Simulated scan of single mutants.
Amino acid sequence: MNENTRVAELHRLARQDYAKGQQERAAVPNLLPSYAAGVHAPEPSDLDVAIRVGQQLLDSDQILSLREALRLLLRALDAEPVDEEEAARRFVARHFPEVTAFLADERGARP
């Protein structure tokens, strides 16, 4: 695959990822989850999980548990201390999964 074809494919995948994200955001109502029959609550976000873990561990005297809860919260807020390269990799992986998969295929990193 020549460089121009590769770049064009990356742009196409980025546009596809963006459009998919826009559709997903438009489809999610800003209402509390309904527990009516047949309606499933949405998957909790990383931040929701980190907050719950932190709340449960507030009364804990176990330092390691508290450190882990803080680490989860920092990761959910995207504030975990990482080097610049890892931060960029996580950003691309989170916002452009199709591009990430494409690049992993090119590197032979996907099974």
Results as ranks from 00 to 15, higher is better:
Leu58Val: 15
Leu58Gly: 12
Leu58Asp: 14
Asp59Asn: 14
Asp59Lys: 00
Asp59Tyr: 03
Ser60Phe: 10
Ser60Glu: 15
Ser60Lys: 05
Ser60Ala: 14
Gln62Asn: 12
Gln62Arg: 03
Gln62His: 05
Ile63Asp: 02
Ile63Tyr: 01
Ile63Val: 09
Ile63Gln: 06
Ile63Phe: 02
Leu64Gln: 04
Ser65Gly: 12
Ser65Arg: 14
Ser65His: 01
Leu66Lys: 13
Leu66Asn: 09
Leu66Glu: 13
Glu68Thr: 03
Glu68Gln: 12
Ala69Arg: 11
Leu70Arg: 10
Leu70Ala: 12
Leu70Asp: 10
Arg71Gln: 13
Leu72Ala: 11
Leu73Ile: 09
Leu74Trp: 06
Leu74Gly: 15
Arg75Ala: 15
Arg75Asn: 14
Arg75Met: 12
Arg75Gly: 08
Arg75Pro: 05
Leu77His: 10
Leu77Glu: 15
Leu77Asn: 15
Ala79Asn: 10
Ala79Tyr: 05
Ala79Gln: 10
Glu80Trp: 03
Glu80His: 08
Glu80Tyr: 00
Pro81Ser: 10
Val82Trp: 00
Val82Met: 06
Asp83Ser: 10
Glu84Ser: 05
Glu84Ile: 08
Glu84Thr: 06
Glu84Val: 05
Glu85Ala: 15
Glu85Tyr: 07
Glu85Gln: 13
Glu86Cys: 01
Glu86Ile: 02
Glu86Ser: 12
Ala87Pro: 00
Ala88Gly: 08
Ala88Lys: 07
Arg89Lys: 03
Phe91Met: 12
Phe91Asn: 04
Val92His: 01
Ala93Leu: 02
Ala93His: 03
Ala93Thr: 07
Ala93Lys: 12
Arg94Phe: 08
Arg94Val: 05
Arg94Gly: 10
Arg94Met: 07
His95Gln: 13
His95Glu: 13
Phe96Ala: 14
Phe96Asp: 13
Phe96Trp: 11
Pro97Val: 05
Glu98Phe: 00
Val99Ser: 09
Val99Gly: 14
Thr100Glu: 02
Thr100Pro: 08
Thr100Asn: 03
Thr100His: 08
Thr100Met: 08
Thr100Cys: 02
Ala101Phe: 05
